Each structure stands twice: as structure tokens, then as C-alpha cells.
Amino acid sequence: MQTLEKNTQQDTALTIAGRSFTSRLMTGTGKYRNFDEMRGALTASGSQIVTVAVRRVQTSAPGHEGLAEALDWSHYWLLPNTAGCKTAEEAVRVARLGRELAKVLGQEDNNFVKLEVIPDAKYLLPDPIGTLEAAEQLVKEGFAVLPYINADPLLARRLEEAGCVTVMPLGSPIGSGQGLNNAANIRIIIEQATVPVVVDAGIGVPSEAAQAMELGADALLINTAIAQAQDPAAMGRAMGLACEAGRLAYLAGRIPVKTYASASSPLSGTVTP
């Protein structure tokens, strides 16, 4: 127990755009069967950053009526997202609405935006060119931009150079539950980035969440795997614990992978027959 406490104390808070968070798990608000399940899952997960699709709130899409009022926004930090935007221009307009939504909810100093530019309706893969264009404009307007991207190390670097406060590579397509199909590229992004790396999309089970954190990711964003679980609150807690376990394992430092076995007990002093 003493060793666990010592290692845990060595960690630092997740800091994005100068704002610190104790939880490294971000959660979404889509796909829940009802608001009670959503609230229970968010509480169980320990998440502090909650993302909301601005266009769905603005248009009162089915399942989102009253979403802004369903949570206590003095407890959660709103991360407005530009889901549903197909072009850079659309995303910039929706981001501006998201900043106004944050003000309405009492977060006057909230300039965060999760940037999504997704013209592809089948695979929901982000447009790298449109994302970069929108990010450059939003940074000029004072937004703290958290861009959702393919696991492309070069694009991640360009977005960081443009002033984005995180990069958010996908593990696999949104809602697919395929896990970390892009682990090698995510590892490169983590190695090169000087801003937090948030693995977003594709995580289906806690073991995959822990794996992403063990790679050195700074945080995770998980929605579908929690919201569509048979018991969202239980899955929310499981994902929160997996995030903590993976982070602690990363800080602890894993043993090297070896080709051959290595005895765990010393050979010296053994009893001979």
C-alpha cells in the first residue's frame, strides 16, 4: 500500500489550456437511453469534462431535449463539440454557438471546443484538411481547441503548431468498439507531442482503456462504450478505474519484453538434492 500511495502522489493533474483536472477520463452525453442513466454513469466514472454536441442541443434533436439542464454544470466542465459539421466553415460557426452555450450555463471563461469536421457519413472519419483549417481560425478567435483526428503524427504536429491545446487521435472509428487499431501511430503522437494526447473513439472495454493509458496517453474520451452498456453506471466506474490503473502502470514503468523466460526466484542458495 505504501508503494501504491507513493507512486500515485508522483502524478500531476491533467492540465489543458491552464485548467487542471484530477480525472483523466472525459465522457460524452450521446446515446444514453435516458437522462437518469447518463447522470448515474457520469457520477460513477468520476469524469469532470463532459462533451455535448452543440448542434443537437440547439435543434432539440430526439434524446437531447433538456440536455443542457440535465446536468449540474457547476460540477462538470463543458466541452462543446462540433459533431455533425461537414466543413470547416460549419465547425467554426457551431464552435461560436458552443462558447455562448457555455456562458448560458454559467461558465463565462470556458473557451474549450472539441473540434470535429466529419464529411464521411459511413465511417465517420475526420477530414484532416478541414480540421486544420477550422483549428487555425478558432485559435485566432481565442478558442482552446481540442481537435479530433485520425492517428496521423504529422497532422498532430501541425495542429499543435497551429496552437491547439490537445490532440485527440482516434483509436478506431467512432462507436465501433474495435479498440486501439492505431496503437503504433498513437505511440508516435504521444512521443512527439508537447500538449496532452487524448485517445478518443473506438474504446469498447476497460482493458482497452487501460492499454491506451499504458501507452502514455494523457486522457481518454469515452462515450458509446459507457452509454450503450447494459449497465452504464457500472461501465462508467469500470472505465474510470481502468483509466487510473493504466495511468499508474505507465508511471510505474513496465518490465522489458523478453524472448525467453526469466526466473522470478533467485537461483543462488537453492537446495541441491
Rank of each mutant, 00 (worst) to 15 (best):
T3S: 14
L4Q: 13
T8E: 13
L14K: 10
I16S: 08
I16K: 07
G18S: 10
L25W: 10
L25Y: 13
L25K: 09
T27V: 13
T29D: 06
F35N: 01
D36T: 10
R39K: 11
G40T: 00
T43I: 04
S45W: 08
G46A: 13
G46E: 11
G46D: 10
I49E: 01
V50W: 02
V50P: 04
V52Y: 00
R55E: 08
T59V: 05
S60N: 14
P62D: 15
P62H: 08
G66T: 10
L67N: 02
A70E: 00
L71A: 05
Y76D: 01
L78E: 06
T82I: 03
C85S: 15
A88E: 12
A91W: 00
L97T: 03
L97E: 14
L101K: 04
A102S: 11
A102P: 03
K103Q: 15
Q107R: 00
D109F: 04
N111W: 01
D120N: 09
K122G: 00
Y123Q: 02
L124G: 09
P126Q: 06
P126G: 07
E136C: 07
Q137T: 11
V139C: 06
K140S: 07
E141V: 00
E141Q: 14
A144V: 00
P147T: 01
N150W: 03
R157Y: 02
R158H: 12
A162M: 12
V165C: 15
M168V: 00
P173M: 04
I174M: 13
I174E: 04
G175Y: 03
Q178T: 00
N181Q: 14
N181D: 04
I186K: 07
R187V: 01
I188M: 12
I189F: 12
I189G: 11
I189W: 14
E191T: 05
Q192P: 02
V197R: 05
V197T: 07
V198T: 10
V198F: 15
D200F: 03
A201H: 05
G204D: 07
P206C: 08
A209R: 00
A210E: 15
E214S: 13
E214M: 15
L220Q: 11
I222A: 09
N223K: 05
A225P: 08
P232T: 06
A238P: 13
G240D: 08
G240R: 04
A245Y: 05
R247A: 15
L248I: 15
L251W: 05
I255H: 11
V257F: 14
T259D: 12
A263T: 11
S264Q: 13
L267G: 08
S268T: 09
G269P: 05
V271E: 10
